[in-house]
């Protein structure tokens, strides 16, 4: 245990090492460590944020789905109502048409009957006249008894 000049040499070496470490070793390593720590912290924060966003989006999607379902139900309900209404309308229209057609047909039939009856009447009249003419060919003057015949025709 003897102190010698070595102590001076060791002190110089120590000082040089410390200065070198302080200038060229510590700062780059510390910077890198801090940069990486920051990156990791950012990454973790981003993950948290993403998780929150995901939860929010899921909630939103759920709400939207619920809304959409409600909306769809409403639309179906409206469509059903409209369908029923349309059917009713169609039925009413068809009924009206039927009534109309029936009425028209009836009118036509009536007109036809009247015309036929008229014709028949006329023919009957003329037949009666013809008959009477044949029966009364000689005795009855057509012109003199036409009023009677007219009356007969009107009664038919």
């Amino acid at each position: 245990m003897n102190l010698t000049l070595t102590i001076i040499g060791q002190m110089i070496a120590f000082a040089v090492f410390v200065v070198f470490c302080m200038k060229f070793v510590w700062p780059p390593l510390m910077d890198a460590i801090e940069a990486r720590q920051k990156k990791i912290a950012d990454g973790l924060a981003a993950t948290d944020r993403a998780e929150k966003d995901l939860a929010l989006a899921q909630d939103k999607a759920k709400d939207q789905l619920k809304d959409a379902k409600a909306h769809a139900a409403e639309i179906i309900e409206q469509a059903k109502k409209r369908e029923a209404k349309m059917i009713d309308e169609a039925i009413a229209k068809a009924n009206a048409e039927r009534e109309h057609i029936l009425a028209q047909a009836k009118a036509e039939v009536d007109a036809e009957r009247i015309r036929a009856r008229e014709e028949l009447r006329k023919q009957v009249a003329s037949l009666a006249v013809a008959g009477a003419e044949r029966i009364l060919q000689r005795s009855i003057d057509e012109a003199a008894h036409s009023d009677i015949l007219e009356k007969l025709v009107a009664e038919l």
């Binding site: 040499g9 060791q10 070198f20 470490c21 390593l29 910077d31 890198a32 940069a35």
Partner: peptide, 28 residues
């Protein structure tokens, strides 16, 4: 003593300097 201590000191600084250079080349 001087040779071994200075040699080991240089070894230490050399190894750590390699890591420091690598670290500063691309921090992330």
């Amino acid at each position: 003593s001087l040779a071994w201590s200075i040699g080991l000191g240089i070894l230490f600084l050399w190894l750590f300097r390699i890591a420091a250079v690598k670290a500063s080349r691309d921090q992330l």
